[in-house]
């Protein structure tokens, strides 16, 4: 990734277009695993009268339900609770991953960063956004039927059809780039502050406070972006599945 990182790219089966950035694969796997195990262990003892972890999990589910309810009817919204919870936790964990530390490896080609926020990579944020947009189309087809889904492209007036097409692509790009921009900026400034802090003892002392401040701000940004990503997912979803517009 340009000036700061060198990507450890491998080609699967030697196919030109099927390139894998091993650092991304590693961090995606880590994030997915963390999310799964945290929720898995939170939901081990499920009781009618909730306590401890179950309370927290139910609070999270209720939070997602509120986000969904603010975007669409519960009749359609009930399908997206799991999607919402998974998105907000995956994005949140991904955003948080790069805040406490980063692991880098110096090689002949340059610096390979193995541990960072996976959401600081545009490929991952854009593909996540594309997945969300594809899901909105899938659920639009599934919940409204092909006829209503098709008619929606010509509502409220027929000449908006091209804009509706453009909207899907622009939504994908803005959804992905917003997350990428925020987290990448956080990463870059963090790397700069850490780099500055390691040049000398004096700079180390001087850069410590800004770094802590930036970590706090990064936590805030990460949480906020996770929330925004989840909320926009539900907003785009409601455009495709709602019957009342």
């Amino acid at each position: 990734m340009g000036d700061y990182y060198t990507d450890p790219v491998v080609y699967l089966f030697g196919i030109e277009w099927l390139a894998f950035n091993l650092a991304n694969i590693f961090m995606v796997t880590v994030s997915l695993t963390i999310v799964f195990f945290v929720l898995f262990f939170m939901s081990r003892t499920i009781k009618m009268y909730p306590s401890g972890a179950q309370n927290a999990l139910e609070y999270l589910i209720q939070f997602i339900k509120n986000i969904i309810s603010s975007a669409m009817d519960w009749k359609q919204g009930q399908h997206f609770v799991v999607l919402g919870v998974t998105i907000i936790l995956y994005v949140f964990v991904s955003n948080m991953a790069g805040i406490p530390f980063e692991f880098a490896q110096w090689t002949d080609e340059g610096k390979i960063v193995w541990w960072k926020s996976p959401t600081a990579d545009p490929m991952l944020t854009l593909s996540l956004a594309a997945m969300v947009i594809l899901m909105t189309h899938y659920y639009g087809l599934k919940l409204k039927g092909p006829k209503e889904y098709g008619k929606d492209y010509f509502r409220p007036v027929f000449f908006l059809f091209p804009f509706k097409i453009i909207e899907d692509f622009s939504n994908t790009i803005t959804l992905g780039m917003r997350l990428y921009g925020n987290v990448y900026a956080k990463e870059v400034l963090m790397v700069m502050l850490v780099g500055l802090g390691t040049t000398s003892v004096l700079w180390g002392i001087g850069a410590f406070v800004p770094m802590v401040v930036w970590q706090v701000f990064g936590t805030f940004i990460g949480a906020l972006q996770a929330f925004i990503f989840c909320m926009l997912t539900m907003v785009y979803m409601s455009h495709k599945v709602s019957e009342d517009h």
Binding site: M1, G2, Y5, D7, V9, L12, W17, L18, A19, F20, N21, N24, I25, V28, T29, L32, V35, F36, L39, F40, M42, S43, L57, I61, V81, V82, L83, V85, T86, Y90, P118, D121, M123, L124, L126, S127, L128, A130, M131
Partner: peptide, 28 residues
Amino acid sequence: GETFTFGDAIFQILGFLVLMWLLKRYAL
């Protein structure tokens, strides 16, 4: 960057879908 790592996208989407399924099955 230098390469368009399309594999990451596929891996992430598949991983995400699997995570959604696992969470639905075992946690949520």
